[in-house]
């Protein structure tokens, strides 16, 4: 009899409905307010996403205070890279004892953002910055380097400029 009653009265379904109904009520009355967000989505392109300090984004080269590339072409990053996206050409620069990267190519479309290169670098010459909007229209836009047209390893402006928030 008890079982029959339980079958007849949909208490279990009512329990579920109350849970979803509670969330509906909370979100419905606060959806347009910023203070009490009962919804869990962030309105991404308008409200910029935050990343943790250790976030692994795009590979970037660093310069020292004099504006000289820190990299000394030890090729550690090239060797450690699991997907072989880094190509370095050693060279000389006048007035500099250490080797100078004539070319430092980085093919971002194959990069897997593992940070092994940064870890292997003994000179703190490269970092992974916090940029994660890495979309571009052309394939060649993903080939970054220290030289060449529009190829820049130093600033985060090259790719990811197609964010909706900017237009």
């Amino acid at each position: 009899m008890n079982k029959f009653l339980r079958t007849l009265l949909p208490a279990d379904i009512a329990k579920g409905l109350s849970v979803t109904g509670k969330h509906f009520r909370q979100v419905f009355f606060t959806a347009n307010r910023r203070k009490v967000p009962f919804h869990i989505v962030s309105e991404y392109p308008e409200v910029p996403a935050k990343v943790q300090p250790r976030f692994r984004g795009r590979l970037t080269m660093l310069k020292d205070e004099q504006g000289v590339i820190k990299c000394v072409c030890c090729l550690a990053c090239e060797k450690i890279c699991p997907t072989q996206v880094i190509t370095i050409e050693k060279g000389k620069q006048e007035g500099r004892k250490m080797p100078y990267p004539v070319r430092y190519d980085f093919e971002m479309e194959r990069c897997i953002f593992c940070e092994f290169c940064v870890e292997s670098c003994g000179f703190d010459a490269i970092i992974l910055n916090h940029q994660f909007e890495l979309a571009a229209y052309n394939r060649e836009d993903f080939s970054l380097g220290t030289e060449g047209l529009g190829q820049n390893m130093f600033e985060p402006s090259h790719v990811g400029k197609f964010s909706v928030a900017d237009d």
Binding site: T87, N138, E140, G148, L149
Partner: peptide, 17 residues
């Protein structure tokens, strides 16, 4: 195959690789 190769750099990389 690259659609466009600015300055021949990609080609050089490809050959070297």
């Amino acid at each position: 195959a690259f659609r466009e190769d600015r300055g021949g750099m990609l080609e050089r990389i490809a050959l070297q690789k």
